[in-house]
Design a protein around this nucleic acid. Structure first.
Lengths: 233, 233
DNA sequence: ATATTTGTATGTTTTATAACATAATGCCGA
DNA sequence: TCGGCATTATGTTATAAAACATACAAATAT
């Protein structure tokens, strides 16, 4: 699955990343003890129960993080995009992974070694604070999602999931094609419904003119109406 | 609702609390800028949308944190017990409160001022790390809960909620009476079901000999069976 | 080129649970 | 102590969504 390790030079240098709060020395130190792996589409990055060895940093590609539920029914809890972390929750909680991560497309992932990272965190409270902040935001999303997934009806849940995809990955240049290509099953696992119902409800949205389907490609034709469906429950 | 402010001397001194990692100076500093409030049963501590002014620390009592859902149907996202924090998520995410907090019984709550706390956090990376750790654990719980609440059937959800209460508040000296007295509505709001169904399903458990009901008092007679029900879905 | 698997699509049946209706009970203030 | 209101209780009905069944298309392997 994963190609051989390699060390990339630039992964911590992006000015938009959380690592901008590092001193040059700290960045050097982290870089020295990191390794990168390429994952192809469908490749398992880690599985529920595995022990984290470091902080994973997605530099390229898309990744789904999901928990296995009753009767093997998965629930996608998060979708990662480049310059985002993966597997940080388990690392900081000092637990084994409580979810699995799989590449949705070709992805590059850097591993920052646990002890090295922790020693930097011990000296750099700004980095700790930044991480805490993003975890707090994530927790907010998770709680909101719990309420939506349990209380909204199927159309509302699907509409909300489409917004989730838009917010995470955005649109193509045409400003209406959602920039991620998920299987109907993944869409179902994101929206807490069966694959059948995801397919059926997507078809309904299409026949209502809210979206246009073309294989896995989803074009949003009426964003305002989609919002209305999402909010109606 | 809330009685007049007062300053307590001991709230940061407990050796079991997260504040054990503070230096004496830091503790002094935090104490100087804190105030405590007494809340009586049912009193609102904060509401969804309010702006946090500091970190709230529950020294005495029990508090429910809940989000308002579709059609005013609440979902309890967390239950706090003494020496636990309240409202930290919004504070650290730099957002307004995304949930409301209400005292379930007479409670004492200390408010550590935002700026004072943040300046301590800036110097004490151990405290940042501890907070990050508890937030990571909380996020894990939240994700697990999402899957249970969406995928388990009504009996499984209720059984899991009873375990949640046991894990949070424990048993009385008799080792079987759950040490918290919630209304049927609160139990329903914890378990993602209607009040009717909470009542009905509790009755079923009682008639099966798994629990014994006496008003709001719940005695667990067969913990193993309750676990089985929770895990069966 | 053909077989096999995987994903997509849609119709039908079944079931869990919400919604509704109506009592009974307990609690609090007048 | 009484009346009123909230909580608890339980039976009935309605309905949303899962489960099931089947078909077809597309991708992949043989």
């Amino acid at each position: 699955m994963a190609k051989k390790d390699y060390s990339c030079e630039n992964c911590l240098n992006d000015p938009n990343s959380i690592f901008s709060v590092l001193s040059d020395e700290e960045r050097e130190y982290l870089l020295k003890y990191h390794s990168c792996v390429h994952h192809r589409k469908g490749s398992i990055i880690y599985s529920e129960g595995d022990k984290p060895t470091g902080l994973l940093y997605l530099t390229n590609g898309k990744v789904k993080i999901f928990k296995e539920g009753i009767g093997g029914r998965d629930q996608i809890v998060r979708l990662a995009k480049p310059l985002g972390f993966i597997g940080y929750r388990a690392l900081f909680a000092d637990e084994n992974y409580s979810a699995s991560a799989v590449a949705l497309e070709e992805s590059d992932i850097c591993n920052l070694e646990r002890n090295v990272l922790f020693s930097v965190l011990g000296n750099n409270s700004a980095l700790s604070f930044k991480l805490m902040q993003s975890m707090a935001q994530e927790l907010g999303l998770s709680n909101t999602r719990t309420v939506s997934l349990t209380q909204k009806h199927i159309r509302g849940r699907l509409a909300e999931s489409l917004f989730f995809l838009i917010n995470t990955y955005g649109f193509d240049v045409d400003q209406q094609t959602i920039k991620v290509y998920l299987s109907r099953e993944d869409i179902a696992n994101l929206s807490n419904m069966t694959t059948s119902n995801a397919i059926r409800t997507l078809s309904m949205f299409a026949s209502e003119g809210v979206i246009k389907l073309n294989g896995r490609k989803i074009e949003v034709l009426d964003l305002a109406q989609l919002k209305r469906i999402s909010e109606m429950g």
